[in-house]
Design a protein around this nucleic acid. Structure first.
Lengths: 133, 133
DNA sequence: CGTTACACTGACGTGAACGTCAACGGCTCT
DNA sequence: AGAGCCGTTGACGTTCACGTCAGTGTAACG
């Protein structure tokens, strides 16, 4: 009898299937302090928090951030009641990240526009080259 | 007497300073067929085309694409009058890339929104924690 | 003509992000 | 108790994207 999701935690297998990653990857992320699953003896149980973080990790990777960058950014989300100085530095870093991401968004928009234009030109050359010659 | 930009080409040094990359990187990109500078004997002269491509390479990297991915995408821009079948495949790939990039932009927007919200919450906790306790 | 300065070509080294493999531990079904 | 199964821990291998270093070439300057 398996409760299938006893108390909102997931085994490593369930995680792998849910997020399409390998066990090795999850262990690697834990070793890098990106995830912190509950340890029952040696085994791992991944919580809601781990899943939220994994989502952000995979997203960050697609944006070209390194795992170290991602960890720093991740830690911004759950550092609630630390001391004020540390929180200030966190906010500082968050604003920096935000600026980076918005710059990246601008570049991405430009890249999309350029690619669209290139496609349009390709369509021109594909449709009307017989008309002139 | 150096013409400084004789005929719109640039030496490897000029390129390095202009784009903040190392010579090794430019040679590596040439070996990977991402760039194709003019070769005077063994020396390289980078054209306008090389510079346009380098801009796109560096941008692609920031989006998390591999150099191989980038080369494929790059080649879409200057394959003018090949045969029709090849052009069709290029357009297909371009549309695929375009879809990827738009998906990435959507994710990026979401990530930005979430980070903004996290920052707003952090500001809440930083401003009014004395009021309740 | 020697020296300086930059450029080139291999060849090997490196860090990040995993993959792979071996050996072991602990359930659980029978 | 034995046989499957995960799951875990090292340890080593791999790929990508370069860095670094040695040796060579060559154009220019004094």
């Amino acid at each position: 009898m398996k409760p299938e999701a006893s108390g909102d935690v997931m085994t490593i297998r369930e995680m792998c299937e849910a997020y399409d990653v390998t066990p090795r990857t999850l262990r690697f992320y834990e070793a890098k302090a990106l995830l912190a699953p509950i340890r029952i003896g040696t085994r791992r149980l991944f919580t809601r928090r781990d899943r939220a973080r994994l989502t952000l990790i995979l997203r960050g990777k697609r944006f070209g951030f390194s795992l170290d960058d991602i960890r720093e950014t991740l830690d911004l989300y759950d550092r609630d009641g630390s001391d004020a100085a540390q929180r200030d530095r966190a906010c500082e870093l968050a604003r920096k990240r935000l600026a980076e991401m918005e710059a990246q968004r601008a570049e991405l928009d430009q890249a999309i526009a350029e690619l669209k234009e290139a496609l349009a030109h390709a369509a021109d050359e594909g449709q009307a080259p017989q008309r002139a010659a």
